[in-house]
Design a protein around this nucleic acid. Structure first.
Lengths: 343, 343
DNA sequence: CTATACCGAGAAACCGCTTTCTCCTAGCCT
DNA sequence: AGGCTAGGAGAAAGCGGTTTCTCGGTATAG
């Protein structure tokens, strides 16, 4: 199917004919590899201009074996945390002439290997954010994917640059903060059970509980979105806890809303903390105490690693960002009469 | 430069040789155009599986003359309004096997024509969100761009489906709401002077002022981001107005914060409204009165138009969404002693 | 003045896949 | 049984570039 003679888009052959040179020469002129008679180059340029010639990107990609595009795979494009990564990655990549193709796996870990394979074929590399992909899948897929940069998915057995967040330390710091405020009964709203970052939070929390001893830490299924957070409000109140660690800011914000509707006051009746420090966390009612995660920096650094890989250079060292606790108004000492260890 | 013999990626020729058929046959099998001996098809499939063959997307695109990708060009990927469009567009497109390439013009209207041209060459079509591109530029690029879908940029002289928001009616409704609350001195925080949507707001406001008569409407330069909003707080207070219409939610949220720092209470001392109804608008302090804009729906509808175009079908009619006022707590009747018409 | 090196630019091969064109073979009809 | 038809699959010609290879011509050296 050879494209019904388009009226538009001049080809290199047409330019060559019009300029009375060979296609090779036109190609050389356009790639600054032309060394001969300057008047020839000039003529080619002029004719190309007249014909509004512009090299066909696909043909070029095929001949060159590179597309100058990379894919970004994320579990949920609607999540501000991933949007921040996308936005900064895209900006950084574009400065080097690369474009990014987005792929939203829509939280479906099972389809991810296929998605990732499909998307990889369309570009030169992939930046993968797959917190929930089983290790086995990741391992099997990683080889076919390279160049590959992993986000939030450190994996010692995979030879790919990795940027991640130390969720364990972040949640620990948050818990420590609540503890110092006087809370002794805290509930953690879990994220997706299979997710690595959920695992890390759980581990961090377990270590914390073990260390301080006199704290009651419960976990409850939460979710990842604002709606999920709203839905947990009743369950949270039912625990009788004086503070809650939400899986992320979205859940925390939803929870704030849900609690408000139930008539519970934050932080007087119950303290709430989030995770990520999305841009709006400081504008919630009340402003949300959370662990700040540098997603924008993450995107930029991911690009640096990727660029090195694409150039065949040695990428910088892997990075683990330590979240920083942002103290705001959604956490406060527990009210008297609540928060006693009840069992 | 014929790619230093990659160890990976089997080619159709290799599969053909291994399966003892021609490349044409392999191609036909993979495209379900094979009608001959089923055992041949089976053998091809098996061999392809063994070799982990997967058709080269670029080569396919070149032969077919289509990439199955579309570009989305937006002025600022960090803005939740555009993120919503991207997210929904991407989801919708992926259901039809298309991917989206993002391009962030970083608010630079002058580079947009080049950017848009570049990005168009890489894919089959573009969804353009260019509120600030001069009409002349848009007109000149539009022809080269098609298939093209325009967002927030209705242009009667361009033959491309267009989805837009009636910013004029939205801001008018918001102003009307403030007026009914008793406000008679309102300040409008302008967005980018060259932007069409700013123009529409200005016109809507002018029509409103003319209609009601006894209202003092001032305009002040604002901006588009949260930071811009923070920075305007003092200027806003200096006007002595009792209510402010921010260009968008981001500015409104920033303003809320700025006012808070100045010790001004919202809505007691001054009412604030936003525009867009981004997901977080209802969680601000206080919850933000705003005009809701269906960005997610916009993205989905944009894809429907685009799909029709790509299939050579007639796209659905153009759409203009009317924003809907979302009454929340950031607006209230003015305090006594403020809001009198002072000149 | 001729042999050699060099230089500029075109011819041709190739990137990997699709599709038209063509050919060969087997089946059918008379 | 022979001629015709249809169907299956390969050869080849693109798609639009890039790059190697090659060759004719000029300049330089002996």
């Amino acid at each position: 199917m050879h494209m019904g003679r388009r009226s538009s888009a001049a080809t290199i052959t047409e330019v060559a004919r019009a300029a009375e040179v060979s296609a090779a020469t036109v190609s050389r002129v356009f790639n600054n590899r032309f060394v001969g008679d300057p008047t020839v180059a000039e003529r080619v340029r002029r004719v190309a201009g007249e014909l509004a010639y512009t090299p066909n990107h696909t043909a070029r990609s095929l001949a060159l074996g590179k597309t100058r595009a990379v894919a970004l795979v994320v579990p949920d494009l609607a999540n501000p945390a991933f949007q921040a990564i996308l936005s900064s990655l895209s900006k950084a990549a574009s400065r080097d002439g690369y474009r990014v193709l987005v792929a939203d796996s829509e939280e479906s870990a099972v389809d991810e290997p296929l998605l990732v394979d499909e998307v990889r074929r369309r570009c030169d590399a992939v930046v993968l954010c797959a917190p929930r992909m089983p290790d086995a899948d990741l391992l099997s897929v990683a080889a076919r994917l390279e160049p590959l940069v992993l986000i939030n998915r450190p994996s010692p057995r995979i030879d790919a640059p990795s940027l991640s967040i130390d969720y364990g330390s972040g949640i620990r710091d948050l818990a420590q903060h609540l503890y110092e405020l006087g809370h002794r009964h805290i509930v953690f709203l879990e994220g997706p059970p299979g997710s690595l970052s959920n695992r890390q939070r759980l581990d961090g929390l377990a270590a914390f509980a073990h260390q301080v001893g006199d704290v009651r830490l419960e976990r409850r299924p939460g979710g990842v979105s604002t709606e999920d957070g709203v839905a947990t409000a009743e369950r949270v109140m039912a625990t009788g806890a004086t503070a809650v660690l939400a899986f992320n800011d979205l859940v925390a914000i939803g929870l704030l809303d849900g609690l408000h509707r139930l008539g519970a006051r934050v932080p007087q009746d119950i303290s709430v903390s989030g995770f990520d420090d999305i841009p709006f966390a400081k504008y919630t009612t009340p402003p949300l105490t959370t662990a700040s995660v540098p997603n924008t920096e993450l995107g930029t650094q991911a690009w640096h690693r990727m660029r090195a890989l694409l150039r065949g250079e040695e990428p910088d060292h892997n990075l683990v960002f330590e979240p920083r606790v942002e103290l705001r108004d959604s956490t406060a000492p527990p009210a008297r009469g609540r928060g006693r260890i009840t069992d």
